[in-house]
Each structure stands twice: as structure tokens, then as C-alpha cells.
């Protein structure tokens, strides 16, 4: 099979899917041209991510990585959420096919983008070096393909 059971479970039964009307931060990464867009909404209270929602346009692994990423950061302090790596997402899903790793990168970036939006909306200082500039997912994908 293309995907692990865990990936298929998150794809078939995505957790925390949908829109959030009163989000404190919204991050959107990806590019429709490349075939993946993730939008992540967070609700923050006392530096804790109290609620997360996502919307994703993309393949099965794009939906699964966003779903599991929301689970991994929900209820966590912001600084812990920022430490979420694409590798951790892949591991939590029991692996991804090589050409789908970029989806996990996108999930990591979606979380960071949502936090960044929260910081900016609330005038909170943050470490700007944590963020890549512009639309990285395609670039990541290109790098990845070349590695193969």
C-alpha cells in the first residue's frame, strides 16, 4: 500500500478539520499550483494553544499530516508547538513515502505560520529567523526530488 494505516486513518477521519471563526492566528502555506495548500487556525490562551483547526487542499498525505499536526500541538504551550518538526510528524504517522515527505514539511510550516500570525496580530516579539521567507513548499519539494 502507498500509505501506512495511521496515514489512512488520519486521511479518512481527519481530526480538527474545518474553519475557525474567531482564531487568534491563521497560517496558510503551500501553493495551489503545486497541488498542496494547508491553512491552520489556532486559539491561544495564556501562551497555550487551546484549540486548533485546519483546512487542506491536497493529497492524502497532505490531509493526514495536517490532521496529526493539529493533534500534536493542541493543548501545548506555543514554544513546544514551534518545536514540532516535520520528522516528528512523519514518525507519528508511521512513515510516509519518500515523495510525500514535503507534506510533513508543509504541516510544520503551517503551524509556524499560524503562530507567527498570532504574534504579529498581538504585537508579540518573536524570533524571525525561525521562518523561511515566501512559499517554500515547492522549493522543498524540488530539493527533495533532486535528492532521489
Amino acid at each position: 500500500m502507498l500509505y501506512s494505516e495511521k496515514v489512512m486513518d488520519h486521511f479518512r477521519n481527519p481530526r480538527n478539520v474545518g474553519e475557525m471563526e474567531d482564531a487568534d492566528g491563521i497560517g496558510e502555506v503551500g501553493n495551489a499550483k503545486c497541488g498542496d495548500i494547508m491553512r491552520m487556525y489556532i486559539k491561544v490562551k495564556d501562551n497555550i494553544i487551546t484549540d486548533v483547526k485546519f483546512m487542506t487542499f491536497g493529497c492524502g498525505s497532505a490531509i493526514a499530516t495536517s490532521s496529526i499536526a493539529t493533534e500534536m500541538i493542541k493543548g501545548k504551550p506555543i514554544n513546544e508547538a514551534l518545536e514540532l518538526s516535520n520528522k516528528a510528524v512523519v514518525e507519528a504517522l508511521g512513515g510516509l513515502p519518500a515523495h510525500k515527505i514535503h507534506c510533513s514539511v508543509l504541516a510544520e510550516e503551517a503551524v509556524k505560520a499560524a503562530v507567527k500570525d498570532y504574534y504579529e496580530k498581538h504585537n508579540i516579539d518573536y524570533d524571525k529567523s525561525l521562518y523561511c521567507v515566501g512559499d517554500c513548499p515547492c522549493a522543498h519539494e524540488h530539493d527533495h526530488i533532486e535528492e532521489e
Binding site: 481527519p14 474553519e19 496558510e28 495551489a32 495548500i37 494547508m38 491553512r39 483546512m55 487542506t56 490531509i63
Partner: peptide, 8 residues
């Protein structure tokens, strides 16, 4: 479409 930010 319901979960797609593009559709949204």
C-alpha cells in the same frame, strides 16, 4: 471541497 482552503 468543504475542507479545502482553495474552495473556501
Amino acid at each position: 471541497r468543504k475542507m479545502s482552503p482553495v474552495w473556501d
